[in-house]
Every structure is written in structure tokens, then in C-alpha cells.
Simulated scan of single mutants.
Amino acid sequence: MTVTLITGANKGIGFETAKQLLELGHVVYIGARDIERGEKAAAALGARFVQLDVTDDASVSNALATISAAEGQLDVLVHNAGILGNELLDGPTALRVFDTNAVGIVRVTEAALPLLRKSSNPTVVTVSSSAGSFWAVNNPDRPEFHLPLALYSASKTAATMLTVQYAKSQPGIKFNALEPGTTATDMTAAFGIGRPPEESARAVVRLATLDVDGPTGTFQDETGELPW
């Protein structure tokens, strides 16, 4: 039995990742801030629900305590929760974006580490973005070159770096960051771009189901490793 927690999983890529991992036989916990939406998503999939706000220490602690009591371990953690934060470029917005997209990774990872260490094949996937890649945003041939998303991009750079640093400090656990591909979600609705979330979720599932000797400390998309 493989126990998986996905943050921000009541919709979009997180929801589709949960669906696909359930089909592979995982016990999936959908983490979501909104209880009603989270419970509805879990019920629709046959998953389990934990209230989890990645910006709230008590919420994170309670969510992992719930999983610990029910399962005794955690095999896969998917950091999927994220916000765009493109409404204003100011201090409060910056704090909110980084709190969700970067600091939230630290909160959840630190709370999850004791349970991950009990797994025979612990795996952590960070849904990051090549919008946070220096290579991509400075390459005129890449779509990221034209994205005016300073806070989102900077927070995703931090998310990828945190993933790499965790891979170095936790050699018994695989940590990989992912560019999932431009996806049609609530986050990208204003741009009118992206492919169906289930297609991008396949890339998440690939990293979430790595063998014991799989790679760690990488930043990838569906075709392999990316410079960043």
C-alpha cells in the first residue's frame, strides 16, 4: 500500500494527479484549504481528505498528524498548492505568494519528514515551473521569456532550489521538481492557454512513482531534465 498526500488537490493538476494515482492503487489524501471543496473532490474520486492550508502551521501539523494516526507512514508527497499572485507587485502580495509557493514547501516537508522516513521508497515531487528558470526566462524562444510574472517566477525559483537542497540534506528520500507543462487551470484562465490537466498530471505521476533507485535533486519536464 502506497500512501500519498497531494497539497492543493481539490482541482486542476492536483485533482488529476490524485485520480491517476488512485487508479494505480495508491491511498491518496487530498489536501485542500477549503473543507467543502476538498471533501467534494475526495468523494468524487474515492480519495481521503485532510484540511491543509500550506500557509498555516497548525493546519499542516494537524493534517500530517491525521495521516500518521491512520496510516503510520507517508510514501509520496506532492507539493502542488500554488498561487499566481499577479494582481499587484507590492510587499503584501510578495509575502503571500512566497508564503504559499515556497515557505509552504518547507512547512509541509518538515512536518512530513518523520512519516516519509518510515517508507521503503519515500518520494517528494514539487510542482514547480520553468517560469522560475533563469535559462527559460532569458531565452527568447521560450514562452517564459514573455511572461510578466515576477512574484510567481521568483517563488518558483525558490521552490526548485528548496527541492534540490532537500535532496542533498535527505539522501534517503527522493526530491524532484517538475515543470508540468502549460496547463489550462484556474491559474491560467486569464491567459487562455494550456492543455488539459490530466496530460500534465501524467508528468507528476511519473516522478511520484519512481523506483527506489530513481533520480533525485532534479528539475524536469515530461521529456527529461531541464536547465534552470
Rank of each mutant, 00 (worst) to 15 (best):
F175W: 09
T183C: 00
N10W: 04
G72K: 01
T100M: 06
W135L: 15
K11M: 14
A167M: 01
L113V: 14
R107M: 02
G104L: 13
D56I: 09
V125K: 11
V60S: 03
D90Y: 07
V106T: 14
P92Y: 08
N101H: 09
G31Y: 06
S68M: 09
A58K: 13
K40S: 14
D56A: 07
T126K: 11
L77W: 04
L5D: 06
L115R: 05
S129H: 08
P122G: 08
T163K: 00
G217K: 10
I30R: 05
V106F: 13
T7W: 10
N176D: 12
D221T: 07
T209G: 06
V27M: 13
L115M: 10
V60C: 02
A70M: 12
L113M: 13
L210V: 05
K40L: 13
A70R: 11
S128F: 03
L52T: 12
N10Y: 01
T157L: 08
A102F: 05
N101C: 08
L74K: 15
S128K: 09
D213F: 00
P171K: 11
N176W: 01
G25H: 12
A167P: 01
R33G: 07
L5V: 08
V97G: 08
N101P: 11
K156P: 05
R33I: 12
F191N: 12
G72P: 03
T7Y: 06
V103A: 15
S153I: 12
R202A: 03
N80Y: 01
A184C: 05
V76L: 00
A44H: 05
A167R: 06
I67N: 09
T160K: 00
S68L: 05
N62M: 14
T93K: 04
R117E: 15
T209C: 06
G72F: 07
Q51F: 09
A177T: 02
G38D: 03
N176L: 13
L147V: 12
